[in-house]
Amino acid sequence: MNSISHDASRPQPALGAGEDPNLKARALLPLHRSWAESRQVAQQVRPVVARSWQRAGDYRATVNPLDSGDLNERRQAHRELQLLLPLFKERLLATASDAQNQLVISDGAGYVLWVLGPFAVRRRSDGIGFVQGARWRENDVGTNGIGAAMAEKVPVQIFGPEHAREEQHSWVCTSAPIMGPGGDRLLGTITLSGSYRTAHPHTLSLLSAVLGEARGELARAEQSRLQRLVDSTQLPDGGYVLVDEQGTVAAQRGFVLAQQLSLPAALGQAPSWVPGLGVVNARQVPGGWILAPTASETLLELYAQPHPHAVIRVEQGSSEIALSHRHWQILRLLAQHPQGVEAEQLRDLWPSPASAITVRAEISRLRSRLGGLIGSRPYRLLVPARFVD
C-alpha cells in the first residue's frame, strides 16, 4: 500500500492540460481492478483517490433516493443553498450545458438536492442512480466527486476508473465543498459531471472562482441576518454576548470572543457553562440568546478514566469536556499547585522541553475550551479543582 500524503490546500485535478482522456482511462482501469480485488492501493494512484479508496465502505449497496416530500423538506431546510442556487445557475449552467455536463448541488449530508442541465446527460445519470434525492457519500457509493469533496474539504476531480463503481467509469465529476461563512461548516457540494471525455483541469478553476463569489454572498447574508437580530433585541447595559440559536456571535460588550460559541442543550434552565465564555445566565430572545456572565460557584472535577476528561459543575448542571493527553497533564499540574506555576514548569511536560511560544499556544487552546478557568502570571486555576477516581 502506498504512503499517502495530503496537501489539503490544493484543488485536485485528474488530468493535465492536453492529456488524452481515453489513454488516461485505459491506464487507470488495471489499477482499479487490482484495488477492487485486493483492496491494496497501487503507488500510481493519485493520493486524493488513494485516500478515498481506503475510506470507501460497502459501495455496492443499493441507492434508494428520497421521495418527493422528503426531498422538498431537505431543500426548504437549507436556506443557504437556496440563496446560492441562482448564482450557481447564472455562473455555471450555460457553461456546463455547452460542455455536455450537468450541474448538481447536494447538501452537507450528501443528498443530491438539484440536478440541472442537458436532458441527455441527466438521463444517463438516472441510469446509475445519480438522481435528485440520492445520497452520494463515499460510504454510500464509494469514491465519487461529491463524497471525496466532502471528505477532503477541497475541490476534487474524480475521473473514469477512479470511481469505485464500474458503472461510473465513463464519467468525470468535478466537485467542490460549499462551506459556511465561518469556514468550518460544510453546507454541501457543487458538482459538474459528464462523460470523462469532457474532463479538463480548468473545470476546477471555474468551480473555485464561483465558490469565491458564493462565500462573499453568504457572508453578506449572514451579516445582514445578525444585524437584524441586533436591531430587534433590547440589549442590557452591562457585559453581555448576543448569539443566534446556533451560537453565532452577533454582538458583545466586555468580551473578545470567537465568532462561534458551542451552546449547551439545557441553556436557560439554570446557570450554564459555555466553553470560551464561562458560567452564564441565559435569556432567550426572538432568534437567539443574551448571555451574561454570573458569579455562580464553579467546581472543576478531573477524571483520568475511562479517558481523560474534565467536568465543570455549576449550581444546577454540569458540562463534560474531553481532554487530550497534553491538556490533561497541564490541568493535573495546575490542580496540584493551587498557587500557580511558571512556564518553565509547564515546559517539562513535553518529551523535549517546549519553547515558551509552544506553552502559550497550548494554554490558549485549553483556555478556549475552559473559558475563564485559567489565570496567568503565574498560570493557575481560578476555581476549586479535585481529582475523581
Rank of each mutant, 00 (worst) to 15 (best):
R313V: 13
R39I: 09
S97L: 03
Y303L: 13
H307M: 08
L291Q: 08
G110S: 10
S52K: 02
L263R: 01
N72G: 00
R91N: 07
R253P: 05
P47R: 01
S9A: 15
D20L: 09
V274Q: 00
H325N: 07
A209V: 06
T174L: 05
H309C: 12
R135W: 14
L257M: 05
R79S: 07
Q44R: 13
L85R: 13
R215G: 12
D140K: 03
N72M: 10
V49E: 02
H163N: 06
Q223N: 14
I374G: 06
T191H: 08
V210M: 04
A42V: 02
D389C: 05
Y196Q: 04
L28E: 09
V131G: 05
E315F: 04
E222T: 01
G287T: 03
D107E: 09
R347G: 08
Y59M: 07
R46V: 10
G117H: 05
D107V: 03
D98S: 08
H169Y: 10
R369V: 10
E138Q: 11
V279F: 06
R253T: 07
I146T: 08
L334V: 10
G117I: 05
T203I: 14
D7S: 12
G127T: 00
L92N: 02
L31C: 11
P13N: 07
Y111K: 00
L346M: 13
S364N: 14
E297L: 10
H6S: 12
P201N: 09
L261R: 05
F88T: 00
T298D: 03
H337W: 07
G188T: 03
R137A: 13
V131R: 13
R33N: 12
I128K: 04
E342K: 13
L28Q: 11
Q284I: 00
